[in-house]
Every structure is written in structure tokens, then in C-alpha cells.
Design a binder for these strands. Structure first.
Length: 565
RNA sequence: GCGCCUUUAGCUCAGUUGGAUAGAGCAACGGCCUUCUAAGCCGUGUGUCGGGAGUUCGAAUCUCUCAAGGCGCACCA
């Protein structure tokens, strides 16, 4: 039960209009002095053949004012001021009753969503760019789960493809087993880079690599063994990072998993007369969709990523019967996904429309380019450790007597990094800069965590006082208090909007707003020293309600709160 | 050349689906700790919303066009 629909109902009755249409028009005024909700009457002018301000005037007289403080008209706007006491009471009591599940809903019950995210390439470093897909995917997983959707997190490991031919060729020639034991990814990266250097001088190496990959696909023992070894050591390193970020997957079915499922796809394409030969390759023609063809089999008969993605999509539909099938992959691959989805549609799969590519901008560097082939990368682990180190340093400066500093530093440091990655519109590029990503001031992860810690500190002290008067919500009358209450009330709306747009940053921004409103309230309204017992209790319950919203909100981003910092 | 994305304050970015005087953070300057954690709060200043045209009561938001930057355009993923 929310106020927006109550107000929509009142307007609908007074104006004799459809409730849903009215609700869509209701907006929140730019400034609180203008009201809590507003109904613009401009569009009604045509229907009623009257000036908007007249319509607003007439409606304001006809409307049922119960539960409202007052209704004002300004020009063509009808502005509603809700009854603060009953609104605050309703919101706060709901939060305190629902606690850890406040903001959650069941709208996704019975619907399964597969989310393909993170998906690093085996044998390559997990660098700062990989956190985009990892953080966004993990957050969407949590956001969708909170609304009842059954999520399946899939780490579509890049553990197949001609790059393995290159790696095997490089391994046979230049590997240092001792280094591989100590720092596997670094050694694999070194020989991979060396391969590209050598291949420039001797192009025949490329042919050898292709042959190795062909052998791997055909199951030759030597290649399979080396591939498994490379995969094992890589996964160990990836898991260290996933553990650090507390990210789990339901499936690690990567590209290799679909190796034996591609023939069926090729066969099906043939049967449906979609496959044509072009320049020696087998492709699906997409001319009528104004796209280049989707390559299914290369001229040498080997598979390609589009083949695997087709097999994977079909497998996921069969296995999970998804409601939505989400791919959290960089924007640079949008054409590829368009091609794959269109091909699925051509195969007669209507559910192709439920496949969604959630793209994001790339991580860039101000001066240099990030290139795995040149070995020019910043490891994600180094960034995370730097964040933790800086958080530790901040603790030593600001709160040296804090207990379990390392644990707090870890949560704050990681929180700062994740928060930065989830703060802006995902389609924006990130220009990599340690100081920007690890900032602790202003609209940042630590700012929100700090707000939470302050709130918890007050609640701990209140506990000691054994405070027991019942709250008098009619006393919560200041603008700071009411603005915070209104924000807390709109948590679920923010979550639903972020689902609609596949955009975690909407939740991130919402939490920033809550923390800001809380800090304002905190600075202006005395809580523990408040002499009016009823007001004190009401303020304490508002503080407690805020802690649940911040905690639940950060959880949706994959960020932990700290009780003290 | 074609397609997609981006362009809002000195910098980094929001902008509730077309609404009221376009907002935050950072940076700069000034204030607030004998009272709940100063990683905080308050105050001060800055705008051809990339340019132009159109659609209408009303445009940062929709359409067209031009420009700048990024990405992609067949056997890498």
C-alpha cells in the first residue's frame, strides 16, 4: 500500500478517470515546499476543453482530503501534502517489521533469470576491466533475487577457442614450470605475449596454433591434458578474487562445456535451411536485418564464438526455462549479440526476444591502452589490495582505537571499489584512475558505510539506556525528518526501476540519497539528547529504519556494512 | 563508408520516461567538534544542457541534421 496509489485513487474518483492513467502522470515535485506529490493537469486540458489551472482548481475542491494535510494548486499543478504523522508512522513501522527483507517483493516468483557475467578468459589475468561485468552481474543477481526471481549465475568461462592453440604452442616452447607453479597467470601471460611477438616474425606459428586447437577439439590426449592443467591453475586464481568479493556462481559451464553441443546446432541450422557457404565458411545470412552474416563454422571447419553462444542459449532455455536470459558483456560486443539473437529468432525460437545484452562501457586509461597481448594490464587484485591498504591507512588516521581494523579495512576498501564501478550509468566509459576509484569523500561507498556506522552507534547507545517510551510520530515534523522518511518509503520503487533498466546504478544513487538525507537529519536533529521522550523514540525508530535500508541497499550491490569505522 | 554508444558547471557525473527557477560530488574559499563517530554538516561561485532546425501549452529529455570522441563492422572472444 503506497501513497502514490492512494492519491491516484482520489484523483481518479474526483476527475472520473482511469486510476492507472492517473498514476502514471503523478510526479514528485522538484522541491519539497511544493508538496509531496503533484498531478499536472495540462494533458487533461484537451479532454475537458478547459484551462489546466481551472481543472486543477476544480479538482482540488472535489477531492477527498482524508489522510492529506492539504491540497494546493499552482498554475496547472495540483500539489498534495500528505499527512506527515500517519505517513511516517506507516513507513517506519513497515520497515521495522520487515527488517532485512524491507524493499523485497515477490513479483518475480516462479520466474527464472539466467545471468551470464564475469566470464573471464582462462590463462589471462583478471584485470580491472573485468570488474565491470563481475560487479554489475553480481548486483543484478542480488537485485532480481530480492524481488523473488530465481536467478542462475553463470560464469561463462573463456576456456575454449584458438587462443588455446596459441597457449599450447607457447607452452611447448617457452614455459618455465617453476614460474608456472609460483605465479601461474603471470607465467601464462608471459608466454602468451611471447607467442604474439614471435608470431610477428614467424607467421607459421599461427598455423601451428590452429592445428593445436583443432587437435584439442578432436580430443587429442596431449592437448586436452595441457588445456586441463592451464584451466585448473587459472581457476584457482580467479576463485581467490571471487572469495574476496564474496561472489558465487551457480554454474561454471564455460565455452568448453558446449563443445559437444555445437554439432546439433549446426545440424539444426542446416535443416532449417539457414546455413549458406560464403568464402569457405558456413554462415547465416543476415542481410535483411542490415547486419553482417553470423559465422557458424570457419573455413577450417572449426567452431567460433557465435556457434557456442547459440548452443549455450539453447541449452539454457532447455535446462532453466528462463524468463529472461541476461548477458553482462561489454558494449563492444553488441553487434555479436544482435547477430546471435537474430539467428535464434530465425531458427524459430520466440524466446530469443527474452535474451538481453546488458552492455557496459570499457575501462580505459588516460595515457595508455589496456592490451593483454602486450602484457600491459593492471590486475584487479592489485586494485582491491590498494583499496584495502588505503582504507587501513584512513582508519589509522581517523579511528586508531577501532577493533578488528583489518576486517573493517577490507569491507571499506572493497566497498569503495565496487561502489565506484556501480555508481554511474553502465554505458559510460570508466577512465581508470586510482584516486578516483579509491576516493573516500563525498558520494562514495565509505560515505554510505560511515552513515550506517554512525546510525548504529546511536542505536547501541540507546540500547544501553534501556530506552522504552513508545514513539510519537506526530512529533516528527521537521523537513529533514520527513525528507528521510519519504526516501525510505521509495526503496522498492528504486529497485523496480533498476530492474526495468538493468541498471544497478539506480540503486547506488538511491542509497547515496538516503545517506545524504540521514546525515542532514543527524546533524540537525538531536536524537539521544532530545528531551521529548516521544519524539526521541520516534527519531530512534527513524534511525533504525534507515540502517535497514542502507544495509539492504548495499547488500544489493554486493557491499557489506560495518558496525563501526 | 555503414551501425551502436557518448556529449550537461573547471573535473567526474545525476536528471524520476515531455513538466515548475537544470542538480550533486570533487576541486577552491569561509564557517561548525566541552552535545549522538568531522570518512560528517552548513554557506559562497560557475552553465550557448555539443551546434542548428522542427514537433507543442511546455524540450536537457522526442524527430531531423551537422560536429566531436569512443566502439563495432566475416573466420579472435
Amino acid at each position: 500500500m503506497n501513497y502514490k496509489s492512494i492519491i491516484a485513487d482520489k484523483i481518479a474518483k474526483a476527475a472520473e478517470l482511469n486510476v492507472d492513467d492517473v498514476q502514471k502522470l503523478i510526479e514528485i515535485p522538484p522541491k519539497p515546499e511544493m508538496g509531496d506529490f503533484a498531478f499536472p493537469c495540462f494533458q487533461l486540458a484537451k479532454v475537458f476543453r478547459k484551462a489546466p489551472n481551472l481543472i486543477a482548481q476544480e479538482l482540488s475542491e472535489k477531492i477527498d482530503k482524508e489522510g492529506l494535510e492539504r491540497v494546493e494548486t499552482v498554475g496547472g499543478y495540483l500539489n498534495f501534502f500528505v499527512d506527515k504523522a500517519s505517513f511516517s508512522k506507516g513507513v517506519i513501522e513497515k520497515i521495522l517489521a520487515e527488517k532485512d527483507v524491507y524493499g523485497h517483493s515477490k513479483i518475480g516468483d516462479g520466474k527464472t533469470v539466467t545471468i551470464d557475467f564475469s566470464s573471464p578468459n582462462i590463462a589471462k589475468p583478471f584485470h580491472v576491466g573485468h570488474l565491470c561485468s563481475t560487479a554489475i552481474g553480481n548486483s543484478l543477481y542480488k537485485i532480481l533475487s530480492s524481488q523473488g526471481y530465481n536467478c542462475v549465475g553463470i560464469n561463462h568461462l573463456g576456456d575454449w577457442g584458438t587462443q588455446f592453440g596459441k597457449l599450447i604452442a607457447a607452452y611447448e616452447r617457452w614455459v618455465d614450470e617453476e614460474a608456472l607453479e609460483k605465479e601461474p597467470i603471470k607465467e601464462l601471460l608471459r608466454i602468451y605475449v611471447k607467442f604474439h611477438d614471435e608470431a610477428e616474425k614467424d607467421p607459421s606459428l599461427e598455423d601451428i596454433a590452429r592445428q593445436h586447437f583443432k587437435n584439442l577439439e578432436d580430443g587429442h590426449e596431449k592437448e586436452v591434458k595441457l588445456w586441463q592443467k592451464i584451466k585448473d591453475v587459472s581457476l584457482m586464481e580467479f576463485n581467490r578474487i571471487y572469495d574476496m568479493l564474496n561472489i558465487k556462481f551457480d554454474s561454471y559451464a564455460g565455452e568448453s562445456f558446449y563443445n559437444d553441443k555445437m554439432d546439433a546446432v549446426v545440424e539444426e541450422l542446416k535443416q532449417k535451411n539457414l546455413l549458406v557457404e560464403s568464402k569457405g565458411a558456413q554462415v547465416v545470412n543476415l542481410d535483411e536485418y542490415n547486419m553482417p552474416p553470423c559465422i557458424i563454422l570457419k573455413a577450417d571447419g572449426a567452431s567460433i564464438y557465435a556457434t557456442r553462444d547459440l548452443a549455450a542459449a539453447i541449452y539454457r532455455k532447455k535446462t532453466y526455462d528462463f524468463y529472461k536470459n541476461i548477458y553482462v558483456v561489454g558494449m563492444d560486443q553488441s553487434l555479436h549479440f544482435k547477430q546471435v539473437f537474430t539467428t535464434l529468432k530465425l531458427m524459430g525460437y520466440e524466446w530469443a526476444d527474452n535474451c538481453v545484452h546488458v552492455g557496459f562501457g570499457l575501462v580505459k586509461f588516460a595515457d595508455k591502452k589496456l592490451s593483454t597481448r602486450k602484457g600491459d594490464v593492471i590486475f584487479l587484485e592489485d586494485l582491491l589490495n590498494e583499496g584495502i591498504a588505503r582504507a587501513k591507512q584512513a582508519i589509522e588516521e581517523k579511528n586508531p582505537s577501532l577493533e578488528n581494523k583489518d576486517e573493517v579495512a577490507k569491507k571499506v576498501g572493497l566497498g569503495a571499489v565496487i561502489f565506484t564501478y556501480l555508481k554511474n550509468n553502465r554505458e559510460r566509459e570508466i577512465i581508470f584512475n586510482f584516486d578516483d576509484i579509491l576516493s573516500f569523500d563525498g558520494e562514495t561507498g565509505p560515505y554510505v558505510q560511515y552513515s550506517y556506522a554512525r546510525a548504529k552507534s546511536i542505536l547501541r547507545r540507546a540500547e544501553e539506556e534501556k530506552f522504552a517510551t513508545s514513539a510519537d510520530f506526530t512529533r516528527l515534523s521537521s523537513q529533514e525528518e520527513f525528507e528521510l522518511v519519504k526516501l525510505l518509503a521509495s526503496f522498492n520503487e528504486a529497485i523496480l526501476l533498476s530492474i526495468e533498466k538493468y541498471e544497478p546504478s539506480i540503486v547506488t544513487r538511491y542509497i547515496i540519497d538516503v545517506a545524504k538525507a540521514f546525515n542532514k537529519f543527524y546533524n540537525l536533529c538531536p536524537i539521544l539528547s532530545c528531551e521529548d521522550e516521544g519524539l526521541k523514540a520516534a527519531r530512534l525508530s527513524l534511525v533504525e529504519a534507515t540502517t535497514y535500508v542502507i544495509k539492504n541497499g548495499l547488500a544489493l550491490l554486493g557491499i557489506d556494512v560495518v558496525e563501526k569505522m
